[in-house]
Design a protein around this nucleic acid. Sequence first.
DNA 1: AAAACCGATTGCATTTTGCAACTGGTTGCA
DNA 2: TGCAACCAGTTGCAAAATGCAATCGGTTTT
Lengths: 165, 165
Amino acid sequence: MTDISRSGCPINLSLEVLGDKWSLLIIRDMMFGNRRHFRELLTKSEEGISSNILADRLKTLLDEGIITREEDPTHKQKGIYSLTEQGIELLPVLAQMAAWGYKYLPVSQELGIRARLLSEGGPKLWAEFMDELRESHLGTKRRKRAGPSVGERLQAAYESVVKRK
Amino acid sequence: MTDISRSGCPINLSLEVLGDKWSLLIIRDMMFGNRRHFRELLTKSEEGISSNILADRLKTLLDEGIITREEDPTHKQKGIYSLTEQGIELLPVLAQMAAWGYKYLPVSQELGIRARLLSEGGPKLWAEFMDELRESHLGTKRRKRAGPSVGERLQAAYESVVKRK
DNA sequence: AAAACCGATTGCATTTTGCAACTGGTTGCA
DNA sequence: TGCAACCAGTTGCAAAATGCAATCGGTTTT
């Protein structure tokens, strides 16, 4: 890891950490796909990351404080990766990027539905989803809300599109 | 350029276009630094991009419809690069990324001030700035507003921090 | 006891990046 | 008119990052 940075610009510094083709996809899978183990991230992603790259990126994300790793008590070898608050707060970045991609790039129907809902929901929905992530990744208690969670709604929407095809 | 994409996910597709260490910095300089010529982008950026990388990225951004290039009527060799609507709408992505970097990374005081103002201003300020960009890059007419533009305010804030040091 | 699964690591080929020098042309100035 | 400075890139080459497939030592399942 290089310690020297090219400049103190916030965008540049962010790109030095996240500016590659995989890091944000890993975050995405942790957020929206609920992937928490190495194997899940490796095999259940659309894009097919290779194991050495995944290992390398997870290490960087750990070093940067964007994720944490703990042992799975039920399985000595499994590590559980979690988002930190810093990682959870990447949601707005991903949401904006998804909205832009949805608008301008050849997004598939089933993978676009989440972007659309997230975009339509706006910052208010993002905040609610981030609260849910705090619960599942940080163990934060939060008062129960009525009805399905944002995560569940996104998942349900995705599945209904898949089913319709 | 590879035409095949790894998946139809909007985030993935966006990253296939913008997921490197330089593309978004070029967009940033065009948006906030008002750089419109090759030389300006090459020499006036904080980070020091090299000319072959810059040429390559400009080509990609052209191909993707994020920027356009036209001849400068006053100077036969100079090309003028402009953001398209698609490029202008990357502002929210940059703004969120800047806000995240500002909060969590060792941002320098003078380069952080823009991120802070942009973050505090929120989507409303972004929309105003995007309107200004439409005027300067697309030639769109817009009704004159009172007082300094968003671009001018950001610039003034930056200069006042530099001066104070 | 064997097979399957776990999180990685290794070796190696390909691709991308980064640096420095350079190109062919244009413009500004003496 | 001639020459220096400037323009947008291009070229050659070394170094680093990426991608693939095979593998590793250990754990869990059957």
